[in-house]
Design a protein around this nucleic acid. Structure first.
Lengths: 118, 118
DNA sequence: CAAACCGTGTACTAAGTAGTACATAGTATA
DNA sequence: TATACTATGTACTACTTAGTACACGGTTTG
């Protein structure tokens, strides 16, 4: 399995670096609170993706959606997990209901619920 | 923090045992594929809850909802996690939308989607 | 009364997780 | 050209996960 997470982070960081030299391994690592050698290994797929907190910090740095980055790391945000754990039967049913539906149908539900067209 | 998972499992197993002697620690452990000492420790909160696979097997044994048992163990079923990971932005939005809604509202969505009243 | 079954205590392990610390060698800059 | 910053490699550690193996003493039951 190719390391999508590391590659994705590296590509994104290098892209930002084109216009901003502070996006070096060292400086990004310092900003998210890890050792540069560790970030380097993560980007090269030599170390597994870091903890949720570090990934969220990294997403903020890279101006990426934290949920997407967490997903690439094979993780699910702890606030979503908590929502499911609080009402497991209900949310298990809801998610299993939605999981095979096309994007637009799920989106419509999200929008209609948000707008109170309900 | 009191150990809800262990206590719950023990209570449920002892209840079933009232009418069926095969619900001893030893025999249930054998049926779900762990050592009796391990199940004993889990029930007494001396060991953390077992892996997802063992919890699912345990839920089947105890005739309980696997999602509920997983939730008590602080876990979320891997098939739900996978659904979220496949479309992280979409499902993050959907779950965050539903998480503060009352049960009946979420249930209505589940039902209406299921029945195609949509 | 002995064989089988019961729960539990102790000791151990093998793999994975999440890093840190330090050294080295290359590259850019003042 | 010296220095300073860069990326990366090697080695190490501490913690957690997910259990197993085995022994012990108590309690049924045939």
């Amino acid at each position: 399995m190719t390391d999508t997470f590391g590659t994705y982070v590296r590509d994104r960081r290098e892209a930002l670096r084109q216009s901003d030299a502070t996006f070096s391994v060292r400086q990004v690592a310092a900003r998210i609170g890890v050792e540069p050698s560790f970030l380097s290994k993560v980007e090269r797929g030599e170390a597994p993706p870091p903890s949720e907190a570090k990934i969220v910090a990294l997403a903020r740095e890279l101006r990426e959606d934290a949920d997407v980055l967490l997903a690439l790391a094979g993780k699910v945000s702890s606030d979503l997990q908590e929502a499911i754990r609080k009402r497991p039967e209900l949310f298990a049913a809801a998610i299993r209901q939605l999981k095979d539906m096309p994007d637009h149908a799920v989106l419509r539900i999200v929008r209609e619920v948000r707008d109170g067209t309900w």
